[in-house]
Design a protein around this nucleic acid. Structure first.
Lengths: 350, 350
DNA sequence: GTGAAAGCGCTAACAA
DNA sequence: TTGTTAGCGCTTTCAC
């Protein structure tokens, strides 16, 4: 009776020993060959590759990880919310990672401590080479688990005083300034702002940048025209309605994120207002869907690709060169304005 | 000089041996305990768990995989297209898998043979316990790689004659019949259909189901009113425009997927037509964004959660009970109509 | 340059 | 019930 005929159909899969035997070399030489070690002669290299091909050999990642300590596995933790920005970010991160021979483990945190603890555990058990923490929120103490075990991490908009931690700074300012200028150039004088929840660091930054941009454009801001929303579509709807009740209304609205802007689009539609003729709207993020709204949304792009690339780069530097003291530990991701169809000159200059 | 002070900060992480030492048992007992083996006495179990907690011990997945042959890793291959249905499906699959203690590896196939080969390799090297092939297209010969190595796979709308392969059948008919009946009840008599590319098996099925549903509702179909599109937003736009050029136009359009429907929404808006007053539109998929379109899209839901759940279940059955000859090998996922704002009675009954 | 041999941390067969 | 032990497939000294 065969030992484990059940798991694999054709008996045993070829292992490094089989390759070595076929190529008539030691397993060390096979290992060196597949790891591109320079100390293998061309002659043997060729024999080994030939055997590998012939046997259809694939190295076993788990065995490699076990002995080398490196898994080529990266974790990414995002918020478990309805904002499509996060799934899109994960996808970008994944693509970049895979292109570099890494796999990724995804965790949705939902900012619940127990869930987060499980996240960390999953990552730790699989021996990830690094974790990108893309929650943009208050960073939970669970991260200590990771840091404590010496796992490299990279955080968005949050600095951690640890040699294994890197930070990605987001420059919202550039994009927000461009947005305000765009509106000002169009002739808008009164611009409202639907802010994100003040509990979010990023939301506060965006709001401050908006105010600074208005000032820079020589436009005055009105307290009433800045409303705290919650970064959801519903929040956008209610934000619009609050603005709508005012007697003196802005002719354009900049939103702290795209979902809010999409809420405004919907609310305006319901109210019989035409965008951009009656009201200009600008979002922030540039989620994939921003292109498909009616009208297509003018928005401030926060490039998920740039963000993902920076996160990956930070992690890879740490993973592949852990002892370099002068490694880059801070990364900057910029924003830019994408003009589509939701902005136009105001009907009457205010 | 410490051996590998560089990788981990606090020397060596606790391993199964450390736990065994602390609990004063053998490593076998520790292994049995963490694997819930019934043959460990409560007394020892307790001691072991205590030691585990105290040492903050986490078992090493790679070591477990290496010896047990099971990785608790599942692969999923989807098409690399802009249709948001696929990322959403991946997310559902992921959630279910994680809830059951599995991790997933994602591959976007882009139906390029070389890319697909890499997909298969990634999965094979990481020793996945199964692969969900959610391409809905012609299934590439690369799958043989997987099948040949005895990896369980599950396919959508495609049967493979292999004991390790399962199939998920999609019942579009129910949803499409409901959609046609909904339109008929509203008073529509003339209904157009924007089909998917005929190269896709699923697109053809949907088209046939539409015809059958029309017949069942006692409505006649016109050749001109069925147009082959490509399941993209652009395709929807051009499909709408073709319909628009006709002298005798349908008062409602059913689309083979949501992206097409969203294209119709946009094209109608551009043409100055109001949806649903001037034209009713129905999609298929119920992507997340269908809720956010203007107006919110009435659509035929193809539940990604159901699909993901079936795929996971199929794989898990195979992975955890590989030798059961009478295992369920076929799964059925149904569709249903979700009525939102893009359908209404026609202005004038045709 | 190349090979022999010592594990990486764990599970499972076998012994007791 | 519990412990002892032989590997899982690979990388990496160390010796030649």
């Amino acid at each position: 009776m065969p030992r484990q005929s059940s798991r694999k159909s054709a008996g045993k899969l070829p292992d490094i020993r089989a390759v070595a035997a076929m190529a008539k070399v030691s397993i060390a030489t096979v290992s060196r060959t597949i790891n591109n070690s320079p100390l293998v002669s061309e002659r043997l290299k060729k024999r080994v590759w030939q055997a590998i091909k012939q046997l259809n050999y694939l190295p076993n990642t788990h065995a490699r990880t076990l002995v080398s300590g490196r898994s080529r596995l990266l974790g990414i933790i995002v918020e478990n919310i309805t904002n499509p920005f996060f799934p899109e970010l994960v996808q970008s991160f994944e693509e970049i990672a895979v292109a570099h021979g890494y796999e990724i483990l995804v965790s949705s945190s939902s900012s619940d401590a127990a869930v987060l603890a499980t996240c960390a555990r999953r990552m730790l058990e699989r021996k990830v080479d690094g974790v990108a923490v893309m929650t943009f929120g208050e960073e939970e103490p669970v991260l200590d688990q990771l840091v404590h075990r010496g796992v490299p991490i990279v955080l968005a908009e949050f600095k951690l005083d640890d040699p294994k931690a890197s930070t990605i700074l987001l420059d919202y300012s550039t994009g927000i300034h461009a947005a305000v200028r765009h509106l000002a150039d169009l002739g808008h004088r009164s611009i409202g702002f639907l802010a994100g929840p003040r509990s979010l660091h990023s939301a506060i930054t965006r709001e401050n940048d908006f105010r600074a941009a208005m000032q820079a454009a020589g436009l005055s801001t009105q307290k009433k025209w800045t409303i705290e929303c919650d970064h959801t579509l519903k929040g956008g709807v209610s934000g619009f309605e609050q603005l709508r009740r005012l007697t003196n209304r802005p002719s354009a609205i900049i939103c702290s994120n795209d979902m809010t802007a999409i809420g405004v689009l919907r609310a305006a539609y319901m109210a019989g207002l035409r965008v951009p003729e009656d009201l200009s709207v600008i979002g922030l993020d540039d989620v994939d869907f921003a292109e498909y709204t009616l009208p297509p949304l003018t928005t401030i792009r926060l490039s998920r690709v740039d963000l993902a690339r920076s996160a990956f780069e930070a992690l890879r530097l740490q993973a592949e060169d852990p002892d370099n003291p002068r490694m880059q530990r801070e990364f900057l991701v910029s924003t830019s304005l994408v003009v589509r169809g939701s902005t136009a000159p105001p009907k009457t200059k205010a």
